[in-house]
Lab assay of single mutants.
Amino acid sequence: ELREAFRLYDKEGNGYISTDVMREILAELDETLSSEDLDAMIDEIDADGSGTVDFEEFMGVMT
C-alpha cells in the first residue's frame, strides 16, 4: 500500500520524489504545520541531503 502511494508521487518512475513534493504531502497531511516545521521535517527525512526522498525514506515517514 505504501509503495502504491509512493508511485503516485513518483510520476516519472525514477525511484524518488523531490523534497518539494514531500513537503506538499506533509502539508496536506497536517495543515497546521508551519513552514519552519516543514523545513525541519524535510531535513530529517532527507538525511543524506540529496534533495530527494527515496522509498525507504518515504516509508520511514509514513510508518
Rank of each mutant, 00 (worst) to 15 (best):
F55V: 07
R23W: 03
D43L: 14
D20R: 11
G60C: 12
M22N: 00
E36G: 09
T52Y: 07
E44F: 14
K11S: 11
F55G: 01
M22E: 00
E36Q: 12
V61T: 07
E12H: 06
T32R: 10
T32N: 10
L8C: 15
T32P: 02
E31Y: 11
L2E: 04
I45P: 01
E31I: 11
M22T: 01
L38W: 03
V53F: 05
G13S: 05
E31P: 15
T63R: 10
S35C: 07
M62H: 04
S18P: 10
S34L: 06
E28S: 15
A47V: 11
F55R: 02
D43W: 12
D54W: 08
D30L: 12
E1W: 15
S34E: 05
E56W: 10
G13T: 02
V21N: 10
S50M: 06
D30Y: 13
E1Q: 13
F58A: 02
M22D: 00
A27Q: 12
R7K: 14
V53R: 01
R23S: 01
I17A: 00
D20H: 11
F6I: 08
R3Y: 15
L38H: 01
E24F: 12
E4H: 06
S34W: 04
S34M: 07
D20M: 10
V53H: 01
M59S: 11
L26Q: 00
A47E: 08
F6K: 11
E31A: 14
D10P: 00
V21T: 11
G15K: 02
V61E: 02
E28R: 15
E31K: 14
E44Q: 13
G51A: 04
L38E: 00
L2G: 03
D48V: 05
E57A: 15
I42T: 02
F55H: 02
T19F: 14
L38I: 12
T52G: 05
T32K: 11
T19D: 02
N14V: 13
D46F: 03
I17L: 08
M59Y: 12
D46E: 03
E1R: 13
L33E: 01
D37Y: 06
D48A: 08
L8N: 15
D20N: 11
M62F: 12
E44T: 12
F55N: 01
D10W: 05
M41P: 00
F58V: 03
S35E: 15
A40R: 14
E28L: 12
M59L: 12
L29V: 07
R23P: 00
I45E: 01
D20L: 12
A40P: 01
E24C: 15
M59I: 12
S50D: 07
L8F: 15
E1I: 12
D39R: 07
I25Y: 04
S35Q: 13
K11V: 13
D43Q: 13
E24H: 13
D54R: 08
V61Q: 05
G49Y: 04
I25D: 00
E4K: 06
E12L: 08
E57I: 09
T19P: 05
A47L: 10
K11A: 10
A40S: 11
V61N: 04
S50L: 07
L33F: 06
F58Y: 09
I25R: 02
E57R: 14
A47C: 10
N14K: 13
D30T: 06
A40T: 09
I42W: 02
E36I: 08
E31N: 13
D30V: 08
A5K: 15
G15M: 02
M62G: 04
M22K: 00
E12N: 07
G51D: 04
T19S: 06
R7G: 15
T52S: 07
I42E: 01
D46P: 01
E36K: 11
S34H: 04
L26G: 01
I45A: 08
T52V: 07
N14S: 07
E36S: 11
D54V: 05
D39V: 06
R7Y: 13
D54E: 07
I45L: 09
D37K: 09
E24V: 14
D30H: 12
S35G: 11
T19C: 05
S34A: 07
D39C: 05
S35P: 14
D48W: 05
L26K: 00
K11I: 12
I25C: 03
Y16L: 05
T63P: 06
S34V: 05
G49D: 07
G15F: 03
T52P: 01
I45N: 01
R23Y: 03
R3G: 10
F6S: 08
L8R: 15
E31Q: 14
R3W: 12
I42F: 04
R23L: 03
G51E: 03
A27G: 08
E12S: 05
E4S: 04
E28H: 14
N14P: 01
M62C: 12
F55L: 10
D54K: 07
E4W: 05
M62S: 03
L29P: 00
E1M: 12
E12P: 02
L26V: 03
F6P: 07
D37M: 12
T32A: 08
E12T: 04
F58R: 00
G15L: 03
G51K: 06
V21G: 04
G49H: 11
L8G: 15
D39S: 07
D48N: 10
S50F: 05
A5N: 07
D37A: 11
V61I: 13
Y9H: 10
V61S: 08
E44S: 13
D43K: 14
D10K: 00
M22L: 12
S50W: 03
Y9M: 09
